[in-house]
């Protein structure tokens, strides 16, 4: 392994890692919003909204994220959507992970014991009050870990935007592989950084999970 090379190029990788982190943070935030809306739609009493929610999940989980990204970035201008690669990356990745988060959030909500709903309704609380004060506070605790799995996947998923030339970690690694012919070193360097990001995120998720644990 060529450590000299690694020491020479690592600052560029760290810069690229910042872009990866930004992509992950923004797209995760967007994903959480899409997931919350999607879950609300899927659990709504309106048939039309339930259909919209189910269609969102089915289409975005049923096709490759890469294709979704290409439609948005390359096809967007044809329908009047002009985005730079970074913006397209955030929106494409965010809406995609939102479909997965929809299912995570919905799963957490419906796994809250049915007796909780019965008890609240028996006290005279409305559906909305029950959801707001009884079901959701419990569901939040149940969804932290599975959302953590989604976020973990999303961090690795940010690599896709290399295909639309966003200069993030994987794109940078690819470029240096091309110019140095040292694929193992470059993989090693980028890999370590990805794992560090995932590790720190994991610590954060565990911390949240512990804090939210039901006493």
């Amino acid at each position: 392994m060529d450590f000299d090379l690694i020491f020479r190029v690592y600052p560029y990788f760290l810069q690229a890692a910042l872009v990866t982190i930004q992509l992950a943070v923004y797209s995760t935030a967007l994903g959480l919003i899409c997931g919350a809306l999607g879950a609300a739609a899927r659990l709504s009493r309106s048939k039309a909204l339930r259909f919209v929610g189910a269609a969102y999940v089915s289409v975005f989980r049923g096709t490759p994220a890469l294709i979704q990204l290409f439609i948005l970035y390359f096809g967007g201008p044809q329908i009047g959507i002009q985005l730079d690669a970074f913006e397209a990356g955030v929106i494409g990745l965010g809406v995609n992970i939102g479909a997965y988060m929809t299912e995570t959030m919905r799963g957490a909500i419906i796994s809250v014991d049915a007796g909780q709903n019965e008890a609240s309704r028996t006290l005279g609380m409305s559906r909305w009050q029950t959801m707001n004060k009884v079901i959701l506070p419990q569901a939040f605790r149940l969804m932290i870990r599975p959302l953590g799995v989604n976020i973990n996947a999303q961090i690795k998923g940010t690599a896709l935007v290399a295909a639309i030339s966003v200069v993030e970690l994987t794109y940078t690694a690819q470029r240096y592989i091309g110019s140095t012919y040292k694929p193992f070193e470059m993989f090693f360097l980028a890999g370590i950084i990805y794992m560090a990001i995932i590790y720190v995120t994991g610590l954060g998720i565990s911390w949240l999970d512990r804090r939210a644990a039901i006493r």
């Binding site: 690795k156 998923g157 295909a163 994987t170 694929p183 993989f187 890999g191």
Partner: peptide
């Protein structure tokens, strides 16, 4: 812990 795309580059190159 690493993206599939990165692994594909590693294997191919």
């Amino acid at each position: 812990g690493t993206p599939l795309l990165l692994q594909l580059f590693l294997i191919y190159f």
